[in-house]
Write a protein that binds this DNA or RNA. Structure first.
Lengths: 143, 143
DNA sequence: CTGTGTGCAAAACGTTTGCATGCCT
DNA sequence: AGGCATGCAAACGTTTTGCACACAG
């Protein structure tokens, strides 16, 4: 997980400008384990910075994704979620409320891929997802 | 993987009607390992059944999903894919062309979830995804 | 005959783009 | 000063809904 300060260094090094909007996005993402969508981030920011536009959030997330500073999660079919933690880790998703939690167990040594697949694919990374009911939703407080 | 005939039985048992449109959808999905999107299925069907509507495909897929006859895959952030194979299995996705292939290795005994997660989640199932480049896209024929 | 299923069209939703203006470097 | 970044609005693709008509049971 990169700090906002580190993000500034990286952006400068890449020749990207540091704007108040980008700083605000870096800060929201710093240490964020809530796996927000672009819109989640926008909604939170627009309260403090009323002129903030969704386009800027979108553009900045896209840039951060391309330089590998954040990870896009494809665990929700309704919208994209972003994770500032770019180390390989895994997730458990509540099928009822959509809550996402991190799992940091390293399964890589056990995830052996069949030979016929290895012949056709150059594997880059992997992701493990667990689905279930979180304690809140088990109590019938589902939504 | 359920056959079209089995699907008919299940639908009848649940009180759902069997229509020519639904039959056509069952048949397209029978033994289908291409992980089609709703639109893929619609486009294929509309050639043979010109009056077929997207709504019907959408509704039927939704019904099949709810009774557990098909699985919705959340591996592509752009659109939803459907898999008539409802047994636990895994996927490898080409990050360049989006091609999806099945992996039938059973990893379940190795995917141990930390205790603090187990306390908060009632785990139902899991999915492993591998990302990489398929042989076509390794050759620079990417798109 | 009854009510579920279909098909059309439009709405909703998240994402993406074009373009004029603003501001970081 | 120059050019990248921002913000607006509109386009886009996918998913979802409302409603009248059709047809399976």
């Amino acid at each position: 997980m990169r700090s906002a300060e580190e993000m500034v260094q990286i952006f400068r090094k890449m020749g990207y400008k540091i704007t108040p909007q980008r700083m605000a996005i870096f800060q929201i993402l710093e240490g964020n384990t809530s796996h927000p969508s672009a819109d989640d981030i926008f909604k939170e920011l627009v309260q403090r910075h009323p002129s903030m536009s969704f386009t800027t959030v979108y553009n900045t997330l896209e840039t951060m994704k391309q330089i590998g500073a954040i990870q896009e999660l494809t665990i929700d079919s309704a919208r994209r979620h972003y994770d500032p933690n770019t180390e390989t880790h895994h997730h458990i998703i509540c099928v009822s409320c959509g809550q996402i939690e991190d799992i940091f167990t390293d399964y890589s040594s056990h995830l052996v891929v069949p030979e016929h697949i290895k012949r056709n694919f150059e594997i880059q990374n992997h992701q493990v997802q667990f689905y279930g009911l979180c304690s809140d939703c088990q109590d019938g407080r589902s939504n």
